[in-house]
Nucleic acid binder design. Structure first.
Lengths: 402, 402
DNA sequence: ACCGGTATGTCAGAATCCCGTACATACCTA
DNA sequence: TAGGTATGTACGGGATTCTGACATACCGGT
C-alpha cells in the first residue's frame, strides 16, 4: 500500500510525457482552476483554458463518473439568452481526504472534503519524549477517529510534520523536538495500518499547499508561505508548483544569515533570521525594555501595548516588523514570488503589523515596473497546515506538471 | 461553503497539456539527455527514459530529418553479441544557434553548434553612454559577422543582458550601467533586422543555462549558477527548469541582506551581500590592510599573496571565502540546490578559494543525510554566458516542461 | 559453412488524448 | 410562434505513445 508516487527522483532517470500523463495533468489543472475560481461550467473552463468545450467535457467526464465532481443546478448567467450553464463543483459526498498535522506532543487529524470543507477533526496529545511506537499509535488513533465518521473511502492521507522529512520515502529524517522520531518511516507505517496511500511532507510545505488550495494563495502562480512563531520556516510555491529540493530539503529560511555579527542561534551559527524574528527574540527584547509580561510576550500583546501608546512597545513593534521584513526582502530578491503569506504568532499583529512589514519590505527593494511584494496574514485560527496536508493528497494524485 | 472569489483572475489563463506539446517536451528531454550523457543509441535512450525503442524512434525521427541529429557509425558495445548500436548525436552541420552577450560597452556574439561547439565569434565596443540605436547597430553588426560564415540558417538568436529584463517581451526594463537602454525592446528590434526569432534574458540566467547545457551543471536537476565579480547575480536551475519570477525578476542575490548593521550598499540599503563579497569590497579591505596593489586587487593577486605567505593576505583571503560562503549558505538553506557553480573574478582563486568556500559553507549548514553543498568554479576563460545565450534558443524551442 | 543467441531498429495495430465541426438542447426576446 | 444565443455532446480526424512482432546484424560455437 506504499506504492503511489512515480518517484520524481532527482538525478538520472529522464521521464517522458505520455498521453495518459497529460490527461492526468489536465485533470489536475482543471481541478485547480475550480478551486481557484469557484464553480465553473464546462464552457467557462473551455474559455479559461483555451480548449474546446468538447475537450473539457472529456476531461471532466471521468471526474464526474468518479464522484469527485457534480453538476450543479442550471444557473442563468449575465447574458440575456442562451442555455443556462451547469456549473461543476466538488461533490459533497466525494471521496474525502484524510489529513494529519504532527507537532511535538500533539497530533491533529481531520477528514476534509475535496472542496476544503472539514468533515471531522480529532486530536490527541503525547509526551514529546514518547517512543516512536506511541506516536504512531496516536496518529493512527486520530486517523481512525475521523475516518469512522465517513462512509466513503478516503482518497488518501496527507501528513505534515515539523522537522526534516524525506517525502519520497515518507521518512522522518530528524526532528529536533521529537528525537525519538528520527529515522522513523512514518508514511509506510501509517499506510500499512490504515490501508490508504500516505503522503508525508514538511509542515511549511503543507502550509503552502493549504494556502494554494484554500487560502490567500488561491489562484496565485508564485508565493511564499512563511511560518513565524517559535521558529521560522517557509514553503515556496514557484511557477505553479511547490518547490522541493533533493531529499525534501529547502525552505529552511529561519537559518539564513541576516546579521552576521549578531547573536548566536540555537543552530550554532550567528545571525540567523530566527535570532531576530522569532517569539523568543521578542520576549528577550521585551524583557530588556522592561515591558509588562515580557516573558510571556506575544505579538498580540505587543500590538496592544503599541496601540495603547507605549513608546517602548511601539519601537519594539516597529523593529519586529523590520526584522520580519528582512527575510521577506531576501526571498523577494532571490525568487520574486511577489506574495508572502505569513502564519503563526505574527498574524496576531493584525493590520498594524502587516502594513508595517509590507512598508518596510517595499522600502528595502528597488522600484520596479511590477508592484512590490504583497504581505498577507493567514487566518488567526489556522487550519491551513491541516488543509494543506489534505491538499497534499490531491497534489500527488493529480500532478500539475509532467 | 465557497468564500466568494474576490478576484476572478482570468488574466492568467490555465494552460493545458496537449499531445503535440507533449511531443515537443519529449524532444527537448531527449536532446537534453544527449547533451547530458553524450552520444546515445535509441536503445540507450529507451532504457534511460523507460519507454519503448519504437517510441524513441518516433521521437528522434523528426530531429534526424530536420538535420539536428545524425546517426553515428555502428559501435559495438560491451555485450558480446547483438546488433551494434548506432549512436545519435548532434549533426556537425546542424542549424546553428546565434548568441549575444551584451554588457556595458561591449558586445560579444557567437555562432554555436547544437552540441556547444563554437563556430565563430565576433565582438565590438561602444561607449557605455551611447544612444540605444548605436547599441542595436553594434549588436546587429556582430550578429551579421558571425552569421556570414554559416551556410545553414540559424535556429534563432539568444541575447544575454546584464540588467533587468522582461524576457516575455524581449525588453530591457532597466540597466544601471547603460541608462540609455532602459525600456528598449531589443528583442523585437534585433529580430526584425536579422530575420530570426530572438530570445532575451538576464545574464545570470543565461549563464545558468550555459552551465546546464555545456558546463558543470550538465546532467544536474538543480543548481545555482552565481556570478561574483564587480557585482553578484545568480541564475537558479531548480528541478529541471530555470527559475524565472514574474516579469523576469529573481536572482538578485547580490542585494540580499547578510549583515544588517554593515556598510551601505550602492542600492541604498545596508549589509547587502554585495557589500562584503564583490571585488570592490576586496579592494577596500586590501587598502585597509595596506596590501600591495590594493586598488587593483583581484582574486588572483590575493590568492598569490596568500600562497606566498603574507599573513594579512591570508586572513583576507579567508574572510573573502567566508563572505562568499554566506550567500551560498543562504541559498542552500532556502532552495537546497546542492550544487553551486561560481563564475567571474572569484574563479581566479582556484582550488585554494574553492575549498575554503566549500568548507566554510558546509560548516555553517546542519549535518544532513545528504551530502553538503558542492562548490564548483566555472572555467577561467568564461564563455558560459555566451553558450547559455545559445542554449536559450534551444530551451525556448524545446521546452522541458509543459 | 551453418546455427543459435542476443541486441538493435522498425513496422503495424490499438489505445489515449485533444481538436474541429456539426447538432441537439434550453432559454430569452420579440 | 419564430429567431437568436449559449451550452453540452457526438463524431471523425490528427497526434502521440504502447504493445507485440519482425527484420537486421554481429558473435561464438559446431
Amino acid at each position: 500500500m506504499w506504492p503511489p508516487s512515480e518517484t520524481p527522483r532527482f538525478g538520472q532517470p529522464t521521464v517522458l510525457m505520455t498521453a495518459v500523463k497529460a490527461g492526468r495533468v489536465n485533470q489536475g489543472r482543471v481541478l485547480q482552476a475550480l478551486h481557484d475560481l469557484g464553480p465553473l461550467s464546462r464552457a467557462d473552463l473551455a474559455r479559461l483554458t483555451g480548449v474546446s468545450r468538447a475537450t473539457i467535457g472529456s476531461i471532466v467526464q471521468p471526474l464526474l463518473e468518479g464522484g469527485l465532481l457534480v453538476e450543479g443546478e442550471p444557473q442563468r448567467g449575465a447574458a440575456p439568452g442562451g442555455k443556462p450553464a451547469r456549473p461543476l463543483w466538488f461533490a459533497p459526498d466525494s471521496p474525502p481526504l484524510a489529513a494529519v498535522h504532527l507537532v511535538p506532543g500533539w497530533v491533529e487529524a481531520a477528514l476534509v472534503r475535496a472542496d476544503g470543507g472539514i468533515l471531522a477533526v480529532a486530536s490527541g496529545r503525547f509526551r514529546a519524549t514518547a517512543p516512536a511506537a506511541t506516536v504512531v499509535d496516536c496518529v493512527v488513533d486520530q486517523l481512525n477517529a475521523v475516518l469512522a465518521g465517513s462512509t466513503a473511502r478516503a482518497l488518501g492521507v496527507g501528513i505534515a510534520v515539523g522537522g526534516i522529512v524525506e517525502s519520497t520515502s515518507g521518512t522522518i529524517v530528524a526532528c529536533n523536538l521529537m528525537p525519538e522520531l528520527s529515522g522513523l518511516p512514518l508514511g509506510p507505517l501509517v499506510s500499512e495500518r490504515i490501508g490508504l496511500p500516505v503522503h508525508l511532507d514538511l509542515h511549511p510545505r503543507a502550509q503552502a499547499i493549504g494556502d494554494r488550495w484554500s487560502g490567500p494563495g488561491r489562484g496565485e502562480q508564485s508565493f511564499a508561505s512563511i511560518y513565524i512563531g517559535e521558529a521560522i520556516g517557509a514553503g515556496l510555491f514557484l511557477n505553479g508548483a511547490i518547490h522541493c529540493g533533493p531529499a525534501g530539503a529547502g525552505g529552511e529560511v529561519g537559518h539564513t544569515v541576516v546579521d552576521i555579527r549578531g547573536r548566536t542561534c540555537r543552530c550554532g551559527q550567528r545571525g540567523c533570521w530566527e535570532t531576530v524574528a522569532t517569539r523568543d527574540w521578542l520576549r528577550e527584547e521585551a524583557a530588556r525594555l522592561r515591558l509588562p509580561a515580557a516573558r510571556a510576550m506575544t505579538t498580540a500583546l505587543l500590538a496592544g501595548l503599541s496601540a495603547a501608546g507605549d513608546a517602548d512597545a511601539r519601537e519594539l513593534f516597529e523593529r519586529y516588523a523590520h526584522n520580519i521584513a528582512l527575510g521577506v526582502v531576501n526571498l523577494q530578491q532571490i525568487l520574486a514570488p511577489g506574495l508572502f503569506i505569513l502564519h503563526g504568532d505574527v498574524t496576531a499583529g493584525g493590520e498594524a503589523l502587516r502594513g508595517r512589514v509590507e512598508r518596510q519590505a517595499r522600502s528595502r527593494l528597488p522600484a520596479r515596473s511590477a508592484a512590490g511584494p504583497q504581505i498577507t496574514f493567514g487566518p488567526a485560527h489556522d487550519r491551513t497546515t491541516l488543509l494543506g496536508a489534505a491538499g497534499l493528497v490531491l497534489s500527488r494524485s493529480f500532478p500539475l506538471v509532467g
